[in-house]
Design a protein around this nucleic acid. Structure first.
Length: 697
DNA sequence: GATTAGTCAGTGAT
DNA sequence: CATCACTGACTAAT
């Protein structure tokens, strides 16, 4: 193995943690991008293309905003009743505009007690009636991995956008925000979903360990069809009418049914809860409860989704798909209220990849109840960050990367200052979403680029955050990337790609991961940097050729023109950041051709300098302990080292004699993904091996 | 169309 | 200022 490069210098002096580690992030794999002509499979079909059979246009929204008019038969423009989103803003309270959807006459509501009837935020837009979901009828019935990912990102992108629109309403106006429901309503009715046919056992495209943040995401990919109920029943062919088995259950922790063994779940039946004026009662053997009882006798596989509190967002939940279980026994027992409750013991079918068990283990590490195997350092940043970063090697005896200085942000030498006319807004306290006067928002096109949770709404050519000359405080929502990362990282030794980065926490799509820290150099310096090409491997170049991808919402779904979501980078002048001598966790992120992280240029001012930063965000939901990767991009011809063999030669796992010169490598998975999955079948190990293999193309 | 459910987000009390 | 119980609004499937 070459990648160790013999740097096994033993344990560094742990007393001085500014000098730890010097293992290179492996940057030898240069991706080749697929031909533009056969680009990503799920981009939008022509707007007036034929509908897939079985697809019927629908009335977009159930609310009064829905267009009552007949669909536009021209089919190539927006609905005539469509209102651009931007036309709707929260009106000042004294306005008597009739199309203001909320009830806010401050005078009467403060006097009248019962007048605080709350309203749901209504979106003043109409989606295209003839929107083509790009998903055929058969794909809607039976999915695969690509479809599942496609549906999930499109849902989340829309949800983020709606969330941003809702956030822009006045705070304390009593308006309920329902972006999740609205987004899923649009997705469902537009046919942007998959695995819509109920089934027992594996759901194609959903993998054990996948995480979700809303129950409706489970519905959209066919994992669990009930939006609220915990048990999903399905009629059996040839069965007596009304007889159903359970195909999936969601355990939300609401019934206090925790068991120590992660492979066992004791699940409480539904019903019997006290609510409102209803008293608690005995549970009845009906619906879901009956279905679970039948699943016990028929011994069918039951999918289990485990839900619990999200540690990063206390108010919301995370759901983990934990694979297939079987009902082993059932009984009744008296609950706290003294009423009978049904209990079902489910046991995990052996041989499946760990999911929930991993979560339980991580919790124990966090609480100090059990040690992390292979832990070398509990915090390689020496408390430079607000969250510790663990250093772990469970693979071999290398004691860590060699020396580098930990640096939490990007460092410009004087000559690289980017000077721009005065920045800064005049908001006090914190910039409020929806404030039309905030000049920082104006630079971002009029919106706060993040949701209230600090999630990136859209990729943009450039994002402007508030800086040190803005009077707003540090908790201003427009300072997401300058306040440090929030997830617990682990720098770990990979089996075959040197050191890598992953997280102990689940990460939502759009979450700020970290900045690329290091020293800004220019291309001349990089070229004159002597004979060895080391610095290349630690350099982040903004001007490489990056594979384009779509991450933002579909404007057609909110009645906007598609020009509103430009996702191309716009960097005033090329930037090279070297993390060779100093950097943060970003220097350990490896390359992937199907990455789960992307970068976004950010600008903000500090000490009268307006500087460009590179911030990484989660491309999709990322389960704990999943390696974080981004696209390293292809060097342009004038980049140092780009025309020699270094990138390709350094390491290819295919071991082929053809590995030389400008050979480029891709993960086999990106080429043969589905074929692998079919061939590997139940053999999880084989599949993983295939997915992790690299080859030249 | 009525019913059902282990939702989800905002509010006000500790 | 967290956390928690409460409650209103709304969903997908049946």
């Amino acid at each position: 193995m070459e990648e160790g490069t013999g740097v096994n210098t033993g344990l560094p002096n742990l007393g001085d943690k500014s000098k730890v580690l010097d293992v290179k992030p492996l940057r030898f794999l240069v991706p080749r991008f697929p031909d533009a002509s056969n680009g990503p499979p799920f981009f939008f079909a022509p707007p007036n293309g034929p509908f897939p059979s079985g697809f019927s246009p629908f009335s977009p929204f159930s609310g009064p905003q829905g267009s009552p008019s007949t669909p536009d038969l021209n089919q190539n423009e927006f609905c005539s009743t469509a209102v651009p989103i931007r036309s709707f803003r929260a009106e000042p309270p004294d306005s008597n505009g009739q199309n203001v959807p909320k009830q806010k006459s401050s005078g009467s509501s403060s006097v009248q007690k019962k007048a605080k009837k709350r309203k749901v935020f209504e979106f003043a837009f109409t989606a295209l009636d003839n929107f083509n979901p790009g998903i055929s009828a058969s794909e809607r019935d039976d999915g695969n991995r690509e479809l599942v990912e496609n549906v999930l990102w499109r849902f989340d992108a829309l949800r983020r956008k709606l969330s941003q629109m809702e956030d822009a309403t006045e705070p304390h106006s009593g308006i309920i925000k329902r972006s999740v429901l609205k987004a899923s309503n649009v997705m469902m009715s537009k046919g942007v979903r998959t695995n819509a046919i109920k089934r027992i056992g594996v759901v194609p495209g959903v993998e054990i360990g996948d995480i979700f943040f809303f129950r409706l995401e489970l519905c959209l990919v066919g994992l669990h069809a009930q939006s609220m109920a915990g048990i999903d029943p399905m009629p059996m062919k040839g069965d007596l009418e009304g007889e159903r088995v359970a195909v999936s259950i969601v355990s939300s922790g609401g019934y206090d049914d925790d068991v120590e063994d992660p492979d066992v779940l004791v699940y409480t039946g539904h019903g019997g809860n006290a609510s409102g004026d209803k008293e608690a009662s005995d549970q009845k053997l009906v619906r879901g409860n009956l279905a679970l009882e039948r699943s016990l006798h028929r011994a069918n596989e039951v999918r289990v989704i485990r839900g619990f509190q999200d540690s990063t967002h206390q108010t919301s939940k995370v759901y983990v798909y934990d694979g297939l279980y079987k009902v082993q026994e059932s009984w009744t027992e008296k609950g706290k209220s003294g009423c009978n409750m049904f209990k079902y013991k489910l046991v995990r079918i052996p041989g499946q990849k760990g999911a929930f068990a991993t979560w339980k283990m991580i919790n124990k590490w966090k609480e100090g109840l059990s040690p992390r195997d292979g832990l070398i350092l509990p915090d390689l940043t020496s408390a430079a960050e607000s969250v510790p970063v663990s250093l772990v090697n469970e693979v071999d005896d290398e004691k860590g990367p060699a020396h580098f200085t930990y640096l939490s942000t990007v460092k410009y030498s004087k000559s690289f200052k980017l000077l721009q006319p005065s920045f800064g807004c005049s908001c006090h306290d914190a910039c409020q979403a929806g404030n039309l006067n905030c000049s920082c928002f104006k630079k971002n096109g009029g919106d706060l680029p993040y949701t209230a949770y600090g999630i990136l709404v859209c990729r943009k050519p450039m994002i402007y955050e508030c800086g040190s000359s803005c009077p707003c405080l540090r908790n201003c929502k427009n300072r997401v990337t300058q306040t440090g990362f929030k997830v617990h990282f682990e720098v770990f030794k990979t089996r075959d790609r040197g050191w890598g980065l992953r997280s102990w926490d689940p990460i939502r799509a759009g979450t700020f991961i970290c900045e690329y820290a290091g020293e800004v150099i220019d291309n001349i310096d990089a070229k004159q940097d002597g004979g060895d090409d080391e610095s290349n491997e630690y350099a982040f170049h903004t001007d490489r050729v990056y594979e384009s991808f779509k991450w933002n919402y579909e404007p057609e779904l909110v009645g906007e023109e598609s020009s509103n979501t430009n996702e191309d980078y716009d960097i005033p002048s090329p930037l090279i950041i070297s993390s060779k001598n100093s950097g943060n966790v970003a220097r350990f992120m490896n390359h992937s051709c199907s990455p789960n992280v992307f970068w976004q240029p950010i600008m903000y001012e500090r000490n009268n300098e307006v500087l460009l930063h590179i911030a990484f965000f989660a491309k999709r939901h990322i389960p704990p302990m999943t390696e974080l990767t981004y696209d390293y991009g292809i060097p342009r011809s004038d980049e140092k080292g780009s025309n020699n063999a270094e990138y390709g030669k350094k390491k290819c796992l295919c071991g082929s004699a053809k590995c030389r010169e400008l050979t480029v490598y891709r993960k086999l998975e990106t080429i043969y993904g589905d074929v692998f999955r079919r061939l590997a079948g139940d053999d999880v190990e084989l599949l993983e091996k295939c997915q992790n293999a690299w080859c030249f193309t």
